[in-house]
């Protein structure tokens, strides 16, 4: 369900978007600057340390979710077997986060229901995902090649 990207705006989604923006402000992110165009949902993107963080609101089965996503590297042209295996091994070792590949990019992400989310918890999730992204991006590029997501 990741990258569902909140298709279909609804009243409750809008309310949640306001909540997320409030939370972002409270942790020092300017929501207006961070806002990104998604086709028909809500999204924000900002730098946290050296990691790029994207936030989306997704809806599934009448429930809204907060997605915190960090793109880390473009999948290299070689070494795929070893890289994919490593990603799955890393996936087992991360806490409260998962690794995935979407459109040739490796992501670290977390999803949780929006209901009951407060600024503390959101901040914790964002820091944790950013921390993993920081730890892993250079390590993976040095070992397997490819290129950092933040590098053009």
């Amino acid at each position: 369900m990741v990258f569902n990207r909140g298709r279909g705006r609804s009243a409750s989604l809008e309310q949640h978007a306001n909540n997320v923006e409030r939370i972002l402000s409270s942790i020092g992110v300017d929501p207006a600057q961070a806002r990104i165009n998604t086709r028909d949902g809500y999204g924000w993107s900002f730098q946290h340390g050296s990691a790029l963080i994207e936030i989306y609101i997704a809806q599934q089965d009448q429930r809204e979710y907060l997605q915190v996503v960090a793109p880390i590297i473009h999948v290299p042209m070689n070494n795929l077997l070893a890289l994919y295996r490593r990603l799955l091994e890393l996936n087992m070792s991360l806490t409260n986060a998962a690794i995935g590949v979407y459109q040739d990019v490796v992501y670290i992400f977390n999803e949780r229901p929006l209901a009951g989310l407060d600024a503390n918890e959101a901040n914790f999730i964002i820091s944790q995902i950013a921390g993993y992204a920081d730890d892993l991006d250079n390590q993976l590029v040095n070992e397997f090649g490819g290129r950092l997501y933040t590098q053009t």
Binding site: L81, A82, L83, R86, E143
Partner: peptide, 19 residues
């Protein structure tokens, strides 16, 4: 890495690996 399963071979575990 093993060409069958992709895992890091024991002798390469504690060395600097690169493409």
């Amino acid at each position: 890495y093993c060409e069958t399963c992709g895992s890091t071979l024991p002798y390469a575990e504690n060395v600097t690996r690169y493409p």
